[in-house]
């Protein structure tokens, strides 16, 4: 290898450096940033990058979780352990609280992903957060493909895809008026495979359900749903024990598992590299609802 070759970053190092630059820009330019942390793999990677960005100082902002009340218990435990280990402040915006006091009503299908928007926006307003880190990636979905790294939200939390600021060079513009806030996506340019390769390279711990395990599941709309308090089989749906893992972690009542033998991070990488289905197509009932399901939710202020 020539000297020139040694002094090129790999794609993972490049993505890491870009993400750290973005995270530092936010910490320097905003008054009250917050990082959305669910315990899902993208938010875990984002938080890991934040710890690297400010070393040896601690991460200089709190994390927030929009809790649907339909969580996988092992993910909640992972969330709490991580927050404790890093000494972070955790804000929880609870969908259950909104349902209990009548501000939100349960949907007829019982799923809660779409109910997260209001608690999220209220959490941002109540805490006066002006920058909100999200783990969204542009490769996930076609509305996300048009998202900026710094994405302005109006006072109603809305995204206006037709009126986005041009984003030039690496000069991010975080200016906003009172009441507005900016969503920031440090993993914009990462793919699902990049995330997994980075998890392997950095030896990042994840909730166990990302790896293959035995679980009681039933099939609904072509997806394997876990049996739990919030997801019981209906008539005609039979429960079986299968070897599965999760590619995404969301509302347990509508997030599907995939059959898998991948018990290690290397095996997961091999599986992701050879997969024939997109992450969301395989595991998210809510994104299958219509051609523009994600676009519509994002316009209203969703992640």
């Amino acid at each position: 290898m020539t000297l020139t070759d040694e002094r090129r970053l790999t794609q993972l190092q490049w993505l890491e450096s870009e993400a750290i630059h973005i995270i530092r820009e936010v910490a320097a330019e905003f008054e009250r940033p917050v990082l959305l942390f669910s315990g899902g793999k993208d938010s875990v990677v984002m938080l890991h990058l934040a710890t690297k960005a400010f070393w040896p100082a601690p991460v200089p902002f709190p994390v927030m979780h929009v809790d649907t009340g339909h969580n996988f218990p092992e993910v909640l435990a992972f969330r709490d352990a991580t927050v404790e280990r890093l000494g972070l402040r955790l804000e929880v915006a609870s969908v259950q609280d909104y349902i209990d006091d009548g501000r939100l009503r349960e949907r007829s299908d019982g799923t809660r992903n779409q109910l997260q928007t209001q608690p999220l926006l209220d959490g941002i307003t109540d805490n006066k957060f002006d920058a909100v880190f999200g783990g969204g990636r542009r490769d996930e979905e076609k509305a996300r493909a048009k998202e900026r790294v710094f994405s302005l939200r109006d006072e109603f939390g809305q995204w206006d895809p037709r009126n986005q600021r041009p984003e030039l060079w690496n000069l991010y513009n975080g200016r906003h008026r009172p009441g507005e806030h900016v969503r920031v996506f440090p993993l914009s340019n990462w793919t699902e495979l990049d995330v997994w390769q980075y998890i392997a390279a950095e030896d990042i711990a994840l909730p166990e359900l990302y790896y293959a395990h035995q679980r009681e599941v039933f099939e609904r709309d072509g997806m394997l749903i876990s049996v739990s308090d919030v997801s019981q089989p209906r008539e005609g749906e039979t429960v079986e024990k299968r070897q599965v893992r999760y590619r995404t972690v969301g509302d347990a009542s509508c997030t599907g598992a995939v059959e898998s033998d991948a018990t290690t991070v290397e095996a997961v990488i091999a599986e992701v590299a050879g997969t024939r289905l997109t992450e969301r197509g395989a595991t998210r009932a809510d994104d299958r609802a219509s051609e523009a399901a994600m676009e519509d939710r994002k316009k209203e202020g969703y992640f």
Partner: peptide, 25 residues
């Protein structure tokens, strides 16, 4: 891309795509 773009049959905004080969992303 977006619904509003499909409705008008045009693309309005820069969209980002990702692909990779053995050598390069």
């Amino acid at each position: 891309g977006l619904r509003s773009e499909r409705e008008q049959g045009i693309t309005i905004d820069v969209a980002y795509r990702y692909f990779a080969t053995a050598e390069r992303s």
